[in-house]
């Protein structure tokens, strides 16, 4: 369980460029949940997840993971960081090793694991993101952009974190690559029962994957609810520069046109089932 109480973060405090990035956020996320995080650019999403990952210390407020308070005196921060895996935006720019294998092994070897365990985890993580064994001995700088991204994500997955945090992991990828990576993340979430926090600008991705969604606006927590509930507030989302999935938009237009479609539809599958149901009942 991740518990945030009164979290604030201020950039460049006491300078001319002082700016509050996160203001008074209170949140409780349960273990094993798939959480979506959305907000316009500069709404404090990245800062928020970096604080949860133990990389950025909040200016004020408390963060507790499974009861252990982060940044407290008795807290071993390195150990806590192994618990949370953070994939930052454009993670391919953090690659540095001679070979893909060594780069993926960087995290696990920092954890002080045995050779065999590191090997197992590297193969496991590489396999998970679709990096073939023949690429492991190559230099990461010879790979294509999409492959580099996968290697970088594998580098975090190999640490087998209990909480996986992804900051726009699919930005700049082609549609096939995007779907594949998201599919793998979902698969991993289900198989290993880990908590996932996904930052994304794609309403479709968030609709398809998440249990609950956190909406940030100008550093403040704007909404936090079940995915279905969030997408019912289409007006409010639009006002803060976000939107709803296209299919939700389609359904609300249908409803306006007098078609008796139910509210709260946010995936194509749901819409299809609902429309089929209505059509059938009209026939009979």
């Amino acid at each position: 369980m991740i518990k945030l109480s009164d979290i604030c973060y201020t950039y460049m405090s006491d300078g001319p460029f002082e700016k509050a990035a996160v203001k008074n956020v209170n949140l409780t996320l349960n273990s094993g949940e798939f959480i979506g995080l959305m907000g316009h650019t500069g709404s404090g999403k990245s800062t928020l997840i970096q604080m949860i990952a133990g990389i950025v210390k909040p200016t004020s407020g408390k963060i507790a993971i499974d009861g252990q308070e982060l940044y407290a005196k008795n807290c071993d921060m390195r150990k806590m960081r192994f618990k949370t895996g953070l994939v930052m935006q454009y993670p391919e720019y953090q690659l540095f090793e001679e070979t893909v294998f060594k780069d993926i092994a960087f995290g696990p070897s920092n954890m002080g694991l045995s050779e065999d365990e590191i090997k197992r985890r590297v193969f496991f993580a590489a396999n998970l993101v679709g990096i073939g064994d023949e690429l492991l001995e190559k230099s990461p700088f010879e790979l294509s952009g999409g492959q580099k991204r996968r290697v970088a994500i594998a580098g975090v997955l190999a640490m087998e974190p209990e909480i996986l945090i992804l900051d726009e992991p699919t930005a700049g990828l082609d549609p096939a690559g995007r779907d594949e990576i998201l599919c793998k993340i979902k698969d991993m979430h289900q198989r290993l029962g880990i908590t996932v926090i996904l930052v994304s600008h794609s309403m479709e991705d968030l609709a398809n994957l998440t249990d609950r969604i956190v909406v940030m606006n100008h550093g403040e927590l704007a909404m936090f609810d079940k995915t279905a509930e969030i997408f019912k507030h289409s007006e409010e989302l639009k006002r803060i520069g976000l939107s709803v999935p296209q299919i939700t938009e389609v359904c609300s237009r249908l409803s306006e046109a007098g078609f008796p479609i139910a509210e709260g539809i946010y995936t194509v599958e749901m819409a299809r089932a609902e429309i089929e149901r209505i059509l059938k009942s009209e026939k009979s």
Partner: peptide, 12 residues
């Protein structure tokens, strides 16, 4: 950014 990313991977 790079420092943060590597810290997240347990760099000391």
């Amino acid at each position: 950014k790079i420092i943060k990313a590597q810290t997240a991977r347990g760099a000391d």
